[in-house]
């Protein structure tokens, strides 16, 4: 797949808006803007399918910038599916497709016109299990998105970008003297922060986190949660979690999804400010879930 890049601007940030993605490769992009605090996502009537099976139905959710939006719900309710649709990762699963609209700066990212490769540079993702590249050093892991995303063109100030990403991920002080060491040699919690740094190095506007702490111990989890708290100043964050306490701790807005009955697609039941949703849910299903009656 061709990945046109604008001359003189080596970072994906330069792609200020999605319509720019359709511009010819050599047309100068708008000057790189400082990250103004993430982008707004408007998910409308999203339904997702795996082959003939409908996994999610009619999800409507607005994700505001500079906020952490948590998605909670029982296993199989489609939280991760919704997350994957946002940055086109559902396309990597054979037979998966999405209907509806996910608006990012006025462009529907589900449209055929959108190049998923460029979309993913604006919307980063962190996965359930830490997955640093095993053949790469700590430094190379962080630099991977920039190096591999630009057909081998050198990114100026790569050192500075790597350092900044590692600082943002609260990992710099732990790895600064062993950047050439293999990334897989770090502890699980450090590996996950390395993966966050790797996602941040591409300078996305939105950060999707798919149960980022479920494979980590409580101390590492705390470190990641602290990190999420600082990152929300600059990024739009969507986090999927199984852990309701975690949602309560880190998020500003919580969305509850559930499966109404076995075999049915997952649906969004309720969304609201986290404190309100946990203290006075309006839906019976939400109340049952957060009080532990089900799930």
């Amino acid at each position: 797949m061709p990945t046109p890049t604008e001359p003189g601007t080596s970072r994906p940030r330069a792609m200020a808006s999605l319509p720019a993605m359709r511009q010819p490769a050599h047309r100068p992009a708008p000057a790189a803007t400082v990250n103004a605090g993430g982008a707004r996502l408007d998910i409308a009537n999203l339904s997702a399918y795996y082959g003939a099976r409908k996994a999610v139905q009619d999800v409507n959710l607005v994700v505001e910038p500079k906020q952490v939006t948590a998605m909670i719900g029982p296993s199989g309710c489609g939280k991760s599916t919704v997350l994957r649709c946002v940055n086109g990762m559902h396309q990597t699963i054979p037979g998966a497709r999405a209907e509806g609209a996910i608006d990012l700066d006025g462009v529907n990212v589900l449209s055929d016109q959108v190049d998923p490769v460029r979309l993913r540079r604006r919307i980063g993702m962190v996965f359930q299990r830490p997955n640093p590249f095993p053949t790469m050093s700590i430094y190379d892991n962080v630099a991977a998105g920039l190096r591999l995303g630009h057909r081998g063109r050198r990114t100026p100030d790569l050192d500075a970008i790597v350092e900044r990403a590692l600082r943002q991920a609260n990992l710099w002080h732990e790895v600064r003297d062993r950047l050439k060491a293999p990334g897989a040699g770090l502890s699980g919690g450090q590996q996950q922060r390395l993966c966050i740094a790797r996602a941040l190095a591409v300078q996305p506007e939105v950060l999707l986190m798919d149960e980022p702490c479920s494979a980590l111990d409580p101390i590492s989890t705390l470190a990641i949660e602290d990190l999420i708290f600082t990152l929300r100043e600059q990024y739009t964050i969507v986090i999927v979690t199984h852990n309701m306490q975690q949602a309560a701790r880190v998020s500003d807005v919580t969305a509850f999804l559930t499966v109404p009955a076995v075999g049915e697609p997952g649906r969004l039941v309720e969304v609201g400010p986290t404190s309100r949703l946990f203290s006075s849910p309006t839906q019976k299903a939400t109340e049952d879930y957060i009080t532990g009656k089900v799930g």
Partner: peptide
């Protein structure tokens, strides 16, 4: 997971 990690960084499938 490694393929997903790479794709999610905006790296093409070939790369």
């Amino acid at each position: 997971e490694l393929r997903e990690a790479s794709l999610a960084l905006g790296v093409t499938r070939a790369r």
